[in-house]
């Protein structure tokens, strides 16, 4: 145990450098993903036939292919048609696109669970469709989506380890780097796992607090 602690603290500065990348990837991607997810969900529920088909195709394409393949297409295949992305940018784009598709499905479910009468009431006082969505439907849908959104964020934090494969020095990559030098694989990767776990527990706690904070009184 003392040996583990010793190795862990020796590795910690490098692991923390990695954690910065991990969190940067996860936070930026979850936010872009939320934007994409809201847009796609709204198009799928309220859009015309064309936007419905297009947004459904997007969701199915992303959900039907491995994230790693999506990342490799962006990072390794695009240069062949002249588009060069840095490892970090390629990772952020692919994680955002991927998370957006999943978030779209969560948000779509939440939108559809808002009572139909809410939209009717919004229309009845003269709101436009867009005002009704923005002022009445989304504030309720987003509250309902927090638990599944937390889940998505937790997944995303762990999935960012895939960025290692295109050369982003994130937490897992840093662990590999340290362990391949001191050969303390067990201790270093246990330490890496511990860091992921701590971050995820903190995030889960934060979001369950957020959920309580924005809960509609009396419901």
């Amino acid at each position: 145990m003392t040996h583990f602690i010793e190795v862990f603290f020796q590795a910690l500065p490098l692991l923390m450098d990695g954690l910065k990348f991990t969190m940067e990837l996860a936070i930026i991607s979850i936010i872009f993903g939320l934007g994409i997810g809201m847009l796609i969900a709204i198009l799928r529920v309220y859009g015309g036939k064309f936007s419905y088909t297009l947004s459904t195709a997007y969701v199915e394409l992303i959900r039907g292919t491995p994230l790693l393949v999506q990342l490799f297409i962006l990072y390794f295949s695009l240069p062949q048609i002249g588009i060069h992305l840095s490892p970090l940018v390629a990772s952020i784009i692919s994680f955002s696109l991927n998370s957006g598709a999943y978030q779209a499905e969560y948000i779509r479910g939440a939108i559809q669970s808002v009572e139909r009468g809410q939209m009717k009431a919004a229309f009845s006082i003269g709101m436009t469709k867009w005002q009704s969505i923005r002022l009445v439907i989304m504030p309720q849908a987003l509250r309902k989506v927090i638990p599944s959104w937390t889940n998505e964020f937790v997944y995303l934090i762990k999935y960012t380890s895939l960025a290692y494969l295109v050369g982003v020095p994130e937490l897992t990559a840093q662990g590999e780097f340290v362990a391949s030098r001191n050969f303390e694989f067990m201790n270093v990767f246990s330490g890496v796992a511990l860091i992921y776990l701590s971050v995820i527990l903190v995030i889960t706690w934060l979001f369950s607090n957020l959920e309580k904070k924005v809960k509609i009184p009396g419901v």
Binding site: E115, Q118, K120, A121, F123, S124, G126, T128, Q140
Partner: peptide
């Protein structure tokens, strides 16, 4: 139509108050 709806109030059987 939203311009006209502003001038026609509606009260629903199920109330449909904005929950949030």
């Amino acid at each position: 139509i939203e311009k006209i709806r502003q001038r026609i109030g509606m009260v629903f059987q199920e109330f449909n108050l904005f929950n949030h």
